[in-house]
Write a protein that binds this DNA or RNA. Structure first.
Ligand SMILES: [Mn+2]
Ligand SMILES: [Mn+2]
Ligand SMILES: [Zn+2]
Ligand SMILES: [Zn+2]
Lengths: 139, 139
DNA sequence: TCAATATTAGTAATGATAATTATTATTGAA
DNA sequence: TTCAATAATAATTATCATTACTAATATTGA
């Protein structure tokens, strides 16, 4: 019984491919829409299940950014994000991980610190400039 | 027509009081349970509606921490948090807001930066020490 | 070849939160 | 005071994201 019984099914392969070749941090629903163009019979449940599996295996990253939906990242290294308060768009933040932050709280709390999450919020190019922009979504 | 038609109803007063005198960053469901001890007829919808209203007015803060539930904070000043990966507990992080972070990305992105959120994650005293601790909850 | 195992599509269930609605409470002008 | 306008409530229903279940299909390796 090989312990490596992870099968790279067509569904998983395509989900991975689509996540790799985009930098927009898709939601599960967005992944579903995109993958459906290539695999019309895939089900939303399969997308959720595999996004979970793949992130569990460290092949992708599940992001807990603000807002109501989780987002998924083809990049697995530690990095920060910027989120648009208006349209929800999430981009990578061009700033290196600040290890100093964890050193700063070390010992000041009862917690055993494992990591940290830093998210910048603001308005993306599209939403920020012109008055109005896109409809403001909640959260 | 006075524009200040916010009424400090008993429901709102008690929700506020309970949020003020705790430092544990309650979820809506937890607020509901606690307030119910004093106002047994209050409805969960009222709790949600007023938590939203109060945070809209800047009287409390709605926190978008990791996990599945929003949490509410009686403190309205900007500060960071530590969250336990095991039990979900959220405490204030004893570290000052780092304005330098926003200065660091300023100009490096297309975004108009408005703010940032920093959350440390780890294991609280109760969950971290003894092997086992509480049952690990998801997210 | 074939039984064990993994994965799927489809659907139902769950959990958090928001919207609706009919009723009650408060306000301020007549 | 009285009463119409407004605000807020309790109760209920709806929505949205996500997870669980289930029966069918696919893959694996002895
Ligand atoms: Mn990213
Ligand atoms: Mn706090
Ligand atoms: Zn935007
Ligand atoms: Zn804990």
């Amino acid at each position: 019984m090989s312990n490596t019984d992870f099968r790279l099914t067509p569904q998983r392969k395509i989900i991975l491919e689509e996540l790799m070749e985009t930098d927009t941090h898709l939601t599960a629903a967005e992944v579903y829409e995109i993958v459906r163009a290539r695999l019309p019979r895939i089900s939303l449940g399969t997308v959720y299940r595999n996004l979970e599996t793949l992130s569990q295996l460290g092949m992708i990253q599940k992001l807990e950014v603000g807002g109501t939906q989780k987002r998924f990242d083809g990049k697995t290294n530690i990095h920060y994000h910027v989120r648009c308060l208006s349209c929800g768009r999430v981009d990578d933040a061009p700033i290196e991980p600040q290890t100093a932050l964890e050193e700063a709280i070390e010992g000041l709390t009862d917690y055993e610190i494992i990591g940290h999450r830093l998210e910048f919020v603001g308005l993306c190019l599209k939403c920020g400039k012109k008055p109005g922009g896109e409809a403001r979504t909640r959260a």
